[in-house]
Design a protein around this nucleic acid. Structure first.
Length: 827
DNA sequence: GAGTTTGAAACT
DNA sequence: CAGTTTCAAACTC
């Protein structure tokens, strides 16, 4: 700067003796420059405005990020998700894929969990936004009609989010029984330019070229992040399955997603009535979370049931959990039974669904196996509805097409933990039971034994999934199910189990109902529906041999603090659930679910409790430890047996041990309050030691605290609140300032093209005309002369000159800002 | 980061 | 049920 000043002084030396240029003169020249210089950009925002518009700043930043790193923009943290949607971290399957065989059509709307596939059609698709935390792709999906129109080739609503890849494949006709990939036809629906690569018979991934309509061309296969799209062939009961895996979506995702993740959403449903052999349509949505791209050839993932072959993603083969069930009942009741366990309390977005795929009696599958040899941090979402494959049942298979409900089964990949099973819709024969106050949803497993109760029988075209369960107990009005994608976990939990030891088949009765459950002894905890602990599998209800209760807690799917979610929204409406769900949303800390889910759970540091006592917050919240700092942790699926014992012990001591502590007050009271009340003695209930204070609620009459200051009129409390508010405001301002500064710096860095050559604008320095520079120098010289006259030391003179220079610069910048505002066209 | 304080959970 | 111990989080330095 000093050199600049010297230079300026030399430039103006001729006027040295006479100039007494005031600030007004500088301003005058600046005014002239405003009209003569086209300012390229100069974001000058007042601090007030800056502090008032943090969101806009964030948006601006996000836009900037999108410009440079689109994928990262997609991976915006869930914290920024809109609250009203109650899905702050949800990521719904962005790709809406319509599989359109020549004679059938299929619409898959992942968000409403209603998928219908026609016979002979199998689709595997990999949603690219599963972990991106984006919610921008759900609208169209929700509006897509789930109905299946026979003999109509069409493309359902296709959402092509940024950085997402969409592949529409058509499976020609009924493939060979062996299911070896018959290849896929290129489907180019009108208005949609899609390039669909063929599928190799070996299931090797095929690189896809994305259509030009892709809104993010840079994200096409082989570009940018280098995460190619894969098409995989999966053979399912003699039917081809097209697997499209997009690995590119990892870009920009949380750094916790270090390991490959795979989600397979698999649907198997019974085709419409046909005299031919069983036609099974499967929808398999596979998400390959492989940020390394195709580093290795795909391999056939282990399919437990032998019916579903899921093509593995590169590097790490995916795991598919398939639950086979032998159905001895009438054919029309052999539709897939979906067992859904939803854990709504802390996070309704956390969903655990047990998929029990009905299977024909001829099916040899009678066991459920959870492949567990997958790298940690991976997940497989498997949605499968297996229809009866027996020709004898073909006559009633059309009913199955309606009743088939996609169910996702999520197996922890890389960790022997069963993650999540998500139903794409609510099966008619599955009843969700949500216990008031409980953080768990319970699903009664019902195996239909008679065909008379199947309302959709005989209706080959009725694909309306809105069929209500015969005995709806309590359902979520709109169950938004989010599956957090498990990031790479710490090494301590990476203890892959043998595939056969990871899970147990839960047979509920003579009518086999198998649940995907973690490896455990599965103690037969009698169903106390108000206090069922996490991870409990209930024996079938007495007298109802076909029913059982599956309780899968959110913890099974929430071993990640990083909220990358796959959201599948059930369109089923159950009006009775709203109040319950509202209550259940209250987390232990009194935070709403969105709050609880919008921030990572704090890792525990347990050392002696093995995380199997309520000392451990993870355990107390019904969650598995994940990325914690605990020592000798047993709160994981590796020690599910011990864990369940501990759960039972806790329940023995306190039947409501796992119920939220913060709930509504007495009848008529709207405020939340601690269920037990605190017992503080020294903290005055104004520190986080106090559970009431921690939950941001005031102590109530049931508290037994001493010297409580946590009441409405407490001056200490008010002071603390004010301080807290002030601190929060300050933090927000600082954050906004940082964000703004970062944005400005980034903006400046991206605009380095000289003004003369850019043609699109001019840099601010072009605003400094000769006159402005001279005026500035005059000001500086004036300051120097004053310092000299005052006999100021050289250091002081230099300081004064520099200060004056700073003022000059500010004025220049200010005028530049005005110029930008006044002449937006030129900017 | 180590040590202390605190109160809930667990135990007797 | 009360008292004590254990435990991990909160807090302080």
């Amino acid at each position: 700067m000093k050199a600049w000043l010297d230079y300026g002084m030399l430039e103006c030396v001729t006027e040295w003796k006479t100039l007494r240029i005031s600030d007004e003169r500088l301003d005058t020249h600046l005014d002239q420059a405003v009209f003569s210089v086209s300012l390229y950009t100069m974001d000058v925002v007042s601090p007030e405005l800056n502090s008032l518009l943090p969101d806009e700043i964030m948006d601006t930043e996000a836009i900037a990020m999108e410009e440079e790193l689109p994928a990262e923009h997609l991976a915006a943290p869930p914290r920024s998700e809109p609250e009203p949607a109650q899905v702050p971290m949800e990521t719904e399957v962005p790709e809406i894929v319509s599989l359109c065989p020549a004679t059938t059509s299929m619409q898959i709307t992942s968000s409403d969990a209603q998928s219908s596939t026609s016979s002979g059609t199998q689709l595997l698709l990999a949603p690219s936004g599963l972990i991106a935390g984006t919610t921008t792709t759900t609208a169209s999906a929700k509006t897509t009609s789930p109905a299946v129109t026979q003999n109509l080739t069409k493309i359902s609503s296709v959402t092509v989010p940024a950085n997402h890849q969409l592949i529409i494949n058509k499976v020609a006709g009924a493939p060979a029984a062996d299911g070896k990939s018959p290849g896929t036809a290129v489907l180019k629906p009108e208005g949609q330019k899609l390039l669909v690569a063929g599928l190799s018979k070996t299931g090797q991934p095929i690189m896809l070229a994305l259509p030009h309509t892709w809104n993010k061309p840079a994200t096409t296969q082989g570009t940018g992040d280098g995460k190619p799209t894969q098409i995989k062939m999966v053979t399912t009961v003699g039917k081809p399955v097209i697997a499209v895996s997009s690995a590119s979506q990892l870009m920009g995702t949380s750094t916790t997603l270090q390991a490959q993740q795979l989600k397979t959403l698999q649907l198997t449903k019974k085709p419409p009535v046909s005299t031919a052999g069983p036609m099974i349509t499967k929808l398999i949505i596979t998400k390959a979370l492989n940020n390394k791209g195709l580093s290795s050839p795909a391999s056939v993932a282990p399919v437990v049931t032998g019916r579903v072959v899921t093509q593995s993603t590169p590097v790490t083969p995916p795991r598919t959990i398939t639950i086979g069930e032998t159905i001895s009942t009438v054919p029309q009741n052999t539709s897939g039974n979906s067992k859904v366990a939803i854990s709504p309390l802390k996070s309704p977005s956390k969903l655990t669904v047990v998929s029990v795929a009905s299977q024909s009696p001829n099916s040899p599958q009678k066991s459920v196996t959870l492949p567990l040899n997958v790298a940690l941090g991976q997940q497989i979402l498997t949605v499968q509805q297996s229809a009866a494959t027996s020709p004898a049942k073909a006559g009633t298979s059309q009913a199955t097409a309606q009743t088939v409900k996609p169910v996702q089964t999520v197996a922890g990949v890389g960790t022997p933990q069963f993650k999540t099973i998500i139903p794409l819709t609510t099966p008619p024969n599955v009843q969700q039971i949500q216990v008031p106050g409980s953080r768990f949803h319970y699903v009664r497993l019902v195996t239909a034994t008679t065909g008379s109760s199947t309302p959709q029988s005989g209706s080959s075209t009725n694909t309306n999934p809105s069929i209500q369960p015969a005995k709806p107990v309590m359902m979520n009005a709109a169950v938004r199910m989010s599956v957090p994608i498990v990031p790479a976990q710490t090494v301590k939990q990476v203890v892959p189990k043998p595939l056969t030891s990871a899970a147990q088949v839960v047979t509920t009765s003579q009518t086999p109902q198998r649940l995907i459950m973690p490896a455990t002894h599965l103690p037969q905890i009698q169903p106390n529906l108000t206090n069922l602990p996490p991870g409990t599998v209930l024996a079938p209800a007495h007298g109802s041999g076909n029913m059982g209760y599956a309780v899968l807690p959110a913890p099974y799917v929430t071993q990640i603090p990083q909220p990358a979610f796959v959201t599948l929204t059930s369109s089923s409406t159950f009006s009775t659930a709203t109040p319950i769900q509202t209550q259940a949303r209250l987390s232990l800390n009194g935070l709403s679910t969105s709050e609880a889910t919008s921030r990572p759970r704090k890792p525990c540091n347990c050392t002696r409790s093995q995380c199997l006592k309520l000392y451990c917050d993870c355990f107390a919240n019904g969650e598995f430890c994940n990325n914690c700092n605990c020592v000798n942790c047993f709160n994981n699926l590796d020690h599910e047996s011990e864990r369940l014992k501990a759960i039972k012990a806790c329940l023995d001591r306190n039947p409501v041990a796992f119920k939220p502590k913060i709930g509504k007050g007495k009848e008529g009271e709207s405020d939340r309050r601690h269920s037990k009340g605190c017992n503080c003695k020294k903290s005055g209930c104004l520190k986080n030691y106090c559970e009431c204070y921690e939950a941001k609620i005031m102590c109530s009459s049931i508290c037994k605290c001493m010297g409580c200051k946590n009441f409405e009129e407490s001056p200490e409390r008010k002071t603390l609140m004010h301080l807290a508010d002030a601190a929060e405001v300050r933090v927000q301002q600082q954050t906004a300032a940082k964000t703004k500064l970062s944005s400005q710096i980034s903006d400046l860095l991206t605009r380095t093209t000289p003004a003369v050559t850019s043609g699109g604008g001019k840099l601010p320095y072009t605003f400094v005309t000769k006159e402005v520079a001279e005026a500035t120098c005059d000001c500086l010289l004036e300051q120097a002369e004053q310092a000299e006259l005052a006999n100021q030391p050289q250091a002081v003179a230099e300081r004064l000159i520099l200060e004056e220079f700073g003022r000059c610069l500010r004025r220049i910048i200010s005028f530049a800002g005005k110029a930008k505002t006044d002449c937006p066209i030129n900017c």
